[in-house]
Amino acid sequence: MSIIQVENLSKSFKSYKKAPGLIGSFKSFFKRKYYEKKAVNNISFNIEEGELIGFIGPNGAGKTTTLKCLSGLIYPTSGKVSVLGYNPFERKSDFLKQISLVMGQKNQLWWDLPPMETFLLNKEIYGVNNKDFEDNLEELAELMEVKDVLNVQVRKLSLGQRMKCELISQMIHKPKVLFLDEPTIGLDVVMQQRLRKFIRTYNQRYHATIILTSHYMEDVEALCKRVIIIDYGKKIYDGELTTIAQKFSQHKIITIVFNKQIVRKDIENLGVVKFFDFPKAAILVKREEANKILSQILNEFPVADINIQEQDIQKIIREIFTSGII
């Protein structure tokens, strides 16, 4: 049985609209107009133990709502959810002791005290025994490289150290399933890389199942083999990251290194010239014609090196969202 099973999950919310200006406020004082918003629209997927999955989607796509349904925070409008064999919404203690939901930007650490105090509190809350607590803390602190700041007041820590300690405090019970909502938001590049390394190690070492939502494609590209793309509450792709290009992109890029002088105009009829700075050039061509155009270039031009590549994943995904392909 898959560790996470989602069947026809849907979730709708009620919201209201207000007209701008003073008159609008006055009107809404007396009457409000409600409308229904479908945040998650009939999503289904299965996740096996030990997978590291990325949820991608623009703002408001329904990623966070789906995550909240999986962790039992939101009651679905319809559909079935099963995590670790439990119905998350029942919020059974045994279930909650095995998961962790980390939403970036939330502060759980007590500000005027060292992070250790919060760790000890969570130890009691999650019922971690002394030996496990020490072992877990030792491993996590080493992985995160924060061993020497555990007893320094949180207010005195840098943002990076604080985020790491927040993460430790929410993982002190070594969860089997980890939900990470925008974990690298607001962090600098170095921190992002360290955090990714930590997530990868945690997944590999403890065979933990991790679902990650992120705006940063670098997170997903670095960590996830499998991604689920969600837009307007619907699942529009569920599979390997590498095959996204094949499925969605209608173009490929041919990169060429010329060994004799040519003019940009010469290659303009082959496709859209994306880049030309002699001796290098890159052309965007239709997927079906790529091979044909490649041999054409080899025949007609003085080529030192030539290569066919998929379009940049980030560009493809951006295109999927902006053009609204469903």
Partner: peptide, 12 residues
């Protein structure tokens, strides 16, 4: 002044 008057209606 008016902006704050507006906020008041929202917080009835």
């Amino acid at each position: 002044f008016l902006l704050h008057c507006q906020r008041i209606f929202e917080y009835r």
